[in-house]
Write a protein that binds this DNA or RNA. Structure first.
Lengths: 278, 278
DNA sequence: CGACACCTTGAAGAGGTTCAAGAAATGTGG
DNA sequence: CCACATTTCTTGAACCTCTTCAAGGTGTCG
């Protein structure tokens, strides 16, 4: 019975503590907003990278003090995006890359006839907007799945600076290459995995990225709907729901709406990479 | 009857003329090999971009003479790859990007348990190797589907030069962004399309790219097996074969092994983007 | 508290896969 | 250049996974 879990865990502390919200990590990786800065302007705030705790995620390591000074100029401003609204939209002019400071995004592309496909979920420290470089216009939408804040990095400024700071140039290349490799992995998932494998891979990937940001290795709060997960994984929302229920039945995870606790990471790994027996 | 076509077209001139081999395009876009150069060294030949007819595909436009001189240094050498052998392999150290001069490649990633997924097919003028930048090692295989020749472009040299030549810098960024956007499109295909839609989209994409290289808009020779097409499209080879047969039955294409003639491009487009009828 | 979005589950159905066999093309070695 | 081995492609039939349609439950937010 999959419904039992809802009552079994009703009232206990599962998934209820603060470490479960992406806005408040356990490790000290949260961005530090200069006190009072937010009050200056409702949407854009001028700030620097050098005192940002997410720098190790967005920016190259091992910068000299002089380079750091220059890098501070990459971020032109910050921008807050309300849950449900878009950071950029398919067709809009491309001017900047965005580094996510807080919050959670999805990116999605649409075909002409209106189908759409979630191409990724992005969290703090990750960069969105790379799709816009090639044609000076964005080819996908970036939608905030929770209230978010991003650093706006005008791309011409990035190009200018990366001619001067070698490690920044290398970093930009790596970020783009990383995105290519990530998408290769998604293609493998979409092209060759079955529903259970897809969802297992998805959960492991999410929890791994969250863990790198100081969150639990075993508990997470999904910021997206079943439908969005399904779109990303090439499944219908009902299939996602059923597969969650199957994992619960098998004792691999606990699920309470969007709260997920992984009880058996190894089992998930085995589902993704089925052992050849004998 | 789908088998009829094989006899119907037996002996006719369908797909038989020279314009159908990727090595001999109708338009003058074929690379010009300096006479005798090939004899100097069996595998690597020092040549420049400035006199290459594929330059408009690989390199930025509107370069000054001085910039062109510099760009010539990007290509360290050329390399010939026999059909079936690999240009690079998952795990190998990354040093260079490769511009395809002639021939046809597939790139594929493998999961730990041995499944593999074709992530793309590349033809003359396209760049492979971008996956290697992020971790200094390649994460996929690039396999020649026919005898091929590539220009070897050491990446540190590219980075060096793109600090000096702004248009090259921009070009490198665009190439990577284009790959990201392409993969977004494949994700849409894998995540939301049915078999017929996938194959139709695949054929239209191939023929469009071939046409940009001076080949026919309606005829093409597939350089890959049904299994490789299937892997790319997230289908089994039998499904690819059946879908081809369906298209033949519907009078949309003629198929004779790997020779394909598109009889009704509009029909293919309608399959990819189904019209919503009332 | 009521409206709305989201999630779960069941039952029936479709699309694609698997297994199997045979045909056609391709490559190889004598 | 031909015979044979191998690879590739096609097709059928049974099966299975995932989808579709439908209904009801749960949670959330104004």
């Amino acid at each position: 019975m999959t419904t039992a879990i809802i009552h079994l865990h009703h009232g206990n502390t599962m998934l209820d503590h603060a470490a479960l919200t992406t806005a408040t990590p356990a490790k000290p990786l949260s961005p530090q907003l200069p006190a009072g800065a937010a009050a200056l302007h409702p949407h854009t705030i001028k700030v620097a990278c050098s005192n940002c705790n997410l720098r190790e995620l967005c920016m190259p390591l091992g910068l000299s003090a002089a380079e750091l000074d220059k890098i501070d100029d990459v971020v032109a401003s910050r921008r807050k995006i309300k849950r449900g609204s878009t950071l950029f939209r398919n067709g809009e002019k491309f001017t900047s890359l965005f580094a996510i400071r807080t919050g959670f995004f999805k990116t999605c592309v649409a075909s002409e006839d209106g189908r759409d496909q979630v191409t990724g979920f992005q969290m703090a420290g990750e960069i969105v907007g790379l799709d816009g470089i090639v044609n000076d216009h964005h080819t996908c939408d970036a939608v905030a799945l929770e209230d978010a804040e991003v650093c706006v990095m005008p791309f011409d400024r990035i190009e200018e600076l990366s001619r001067e700071v070698n490690s920044l140039q290398r970093h930009v290349h790596k970020i783009m290459s990383r995105e290519i490799v990530r998408e290769n992995g998604v293609m493998l998932l979409l092209g060759s995995m079955r529903a259970e494998e897809r969802l297992a891979a998805f959960l492991l990937n999410l929890v791994q990225r969250l863990h790198a940001r100081g969150f639990s290795q075993s508990e997470l709060v999904l910021r997206m709907t079943r439908e969005e997960i399904g779109s990303y994984l090439g499944l219908k929302l009902e299939t996602v729901s059923r597969t969650f229920s199957k994992f619960v039945d098998d004792g691999i995870v606990e699920v309470k709406q969007r709260h997920v606790r992984i009880l058996n990471t190894e089992a998930l790994k085995d589902i993704v990479n089925p052992k050849v027996c004998n």
